[in-house]
Design a protein around this nucleic acid. Sequence first.
DNA 1: GCGAACGAAATCGTTGACAATTCTGTTCGC
DNA 2: GCGAACAGAATTGTCAACGATTTCGTTCGC
Lengths: 216, 216
Amino acid sequence: MPEEARPGSGEQAKQYALDQLRKAILRGEMSPAQRLVENELAEQYDVTRASIRAALLELAAEGLVERIRNRGSRVRVVTVEEAVEITECRMALEGLCAAKAAEEATDAQLDELTGLGDAMSKAVGDGDPLTYSDLNHELHARIRDISGQQTAVTLLERLNAQLVRHRFQLALRPGRSQQSLSEHLAMIEAIRARDPQAAETAVRAHLRSVIDVLSC
Amino acid sequence: MPEEARPGSGEQAKQYALDQLRKAILRGEMSPAQRLVENELAEQYDVTRASIRAALLELAAEGLVERIRNRGSRVRVVTVEEAVEITECRMALEGLCAAKAAEEATDAQLDELTGLGDAMSKAVGDGDPLTYSDLNHELHARIRDISGQQTAVTLLERLNAQLVRHRFQLALRPGRSQQSLSEHLAMIEAIRARDPQAAETAVRAHLRSVIDVLSC
DNA sequence: GCGAACGAAATCGTTGACAATTCTGTTCGC
DNA sequence: GCGAACAGAATTGTCAACGATTTCGTTCGC
């Protein structure tokens, strides 16, 4: 355990604890369903229990941890059924974002998407599923940002955070990258054509295929 | 101010404070952008400041209040632009719910929707926009529930809570009820026909028209 | 030997006080 | 008269201790 003191004293303890905890959960450093005891975390991160408590409350609102009255907190375990539900919601919301992105993207932004597509093609060609997975995530994030739909962006970021554990599984399936790649390229092409309807359809088709892979 | 003591001592103070505050905000008892001072609220609801604090944190996560570091909390003011964004997200998510509802509704549930439609027609015929607005809300809620998509239901409930203030405005526009009614009846008809595609389209058309009314 | 009541340990919920930050009204210098 | 520095008040953020609830191991009765 590193137990390093936190850097700037001006930094707020609760925010620090929140960031550290979220990072740890997203990195998968907490095993699923692991108990999160407030006292232990307080000592580990060198903040008071009240700060940990506030952070855990916020993480619970984000859906990353589960709190049970007088019984403590655990990292939330997302079942396959929930992962499917979450992906269905992503389908709806990312479809919206893609349509708006197709309408509002600047030429520079379109070039950026094209570049991402090329990098993804290369990663698949090189047989590098980890890099591909990262680029995959970056592409979805860029489309969200380009849409300018702040409400949808916030919702999607929360939803995605809950899927970290299922993402690994998905990325490493043999043959998955190839299919995924063509779907992603279709998304990019539709946005480049500034065709909202086609962009939405492409994103939905892609996430539909993610759901199919998830549920088997 | 009633300043009544809370009923069961076994009830958790934070939960009590959270419920009371949420209710007060949803009822519009807090004027927009009103400052929410932790000490005042603590005294008003007869709980400690820590409980109020935890409740405010949770409400902030729900998007009902806004917190600024060292400056306090206010009830969040939803601009028209944000209301449009929120309604766009509703369009995506309620479209999903309607499609699933069309697939999974039982006969009894379909009858219930039909009954709601009849009541809505009657309310419009009677020129009773308030009752109509309530039924409107109930219909959307029932469709959500029937879909069984718990993730979408949770997201939608949060989004809807943020729109309370804009709902009144909308309901009282002259002639609005008639158009809204026909859109709602179309939604019900599509679900009764167990046609997911049509149901989604109908819901989207309805919310698209809500957006049009909102933005002018 | 087995189940139910009991008690100790662990953990969360709550409390009141203290420290840090921000805002506001005032005064000083120009 | 006007803007900047300053002190005071108000408010939030943090802390350590106390009280309540749940859990788990133990013992008692049958």
